[in-house]
Simulated scan of single mutants.
Amino acid sequence: LWELYPGHPNLLPAYLDGPRELAGPDGAGYVAKPLLGREGAGVTVHEPGSAPVLRDEPCCYQELAPLPDFAGNRVVLGAWVVEDEAAGLGIRESAGLVTDEYARFLPHVIL
Rank of each mutant, 00 (worst) to 15 (best):
P52H: 11
R55S: 15
V45L: 11
W80M: 05
V81Q: 02
G90R: 10
H108W: 14
E39N: 04
F105Y: 15
V82W: 03
A71M: 06
G96M: 03
S50E: 14
V98E: 01
S50Y: 12
E101Q: 15
R38F: 13
H46S: 06
G72H: 07
P66W: 02
A95L: 08
T44W: 06
S50H: 13
N73P: 03
V98H: 09
E47R: 15
R55C: 13
Y61W: 08
E39P: 00
D100P: 02
V45S: 10
Y61H: 11
L89M: 02
P52G: 12
A65H: 12
H46K: 07
V109E: 10
G40H: 02
A87V: 05
W80G: 05
A86M: 09
L36R: 15
V76K: 06
F105N: 12
D69V: 03
V81K: 04
L89Q: 05
W80R: 05
T44Q: 11
V53K: 06
A41V: 15
Y102P: 00
V45K: 13
W80P: 02
P66E: 10
H108K: 13
E93D: 08
A95D: 06
R104D: 04
E47Y: 12
E47L: 12
A103H: 05
A71V: 00
R38A: 11
L89Y: 01
P68R: 03
A71L: 14
V98T: 10
L67N: 00
A71S: 13
E101Y: 14
I110E: 07
L106W: 01
L77A: 04
A95C: 10
C59I: 04
V81Y: 02
P52R: 09
R74N: 03
V45I: 14
D69A: 07
R74I: 02
Y102Q: 15
D100R: 04
G42W: 05
V81W: 08
R92F: 02
R55N: 13
L97M: 13
L36M: 15
A65G: 06
A41L: 15
V82R: 06
H46F: 13
R104M: 03
F105M: 14
V45G: 09
G90D: 13
T44A: 14
L89F: 00
L97K: 08
L36H: 15
P68L: 07
N73S: 11
A51L: 11
Y102R: 15
T44C: 08
R74L: 04
Y61M: 10
V81I: 11
D100A: 12
P107N: 11
C59F: 10
A41W: 14
S50F: 11
I91F: 00
A95F: 03
E85P: 00
G72L: 11
I91S: 07
A41P: 11
P68K: 01
E57S: 09
C59N: 12
G42T: 04
P68V: 01
G49N: 09
G40T: 02
V75A: 01
A103D: 09
V98Y: 11
V81G: 01
V82C: 07
L36P: 08
L64I: 06
D69Y: 07
V81D: 03
T44G: 08
L54Y: 08
E39V: 02
H46R: 06
A65F: 12
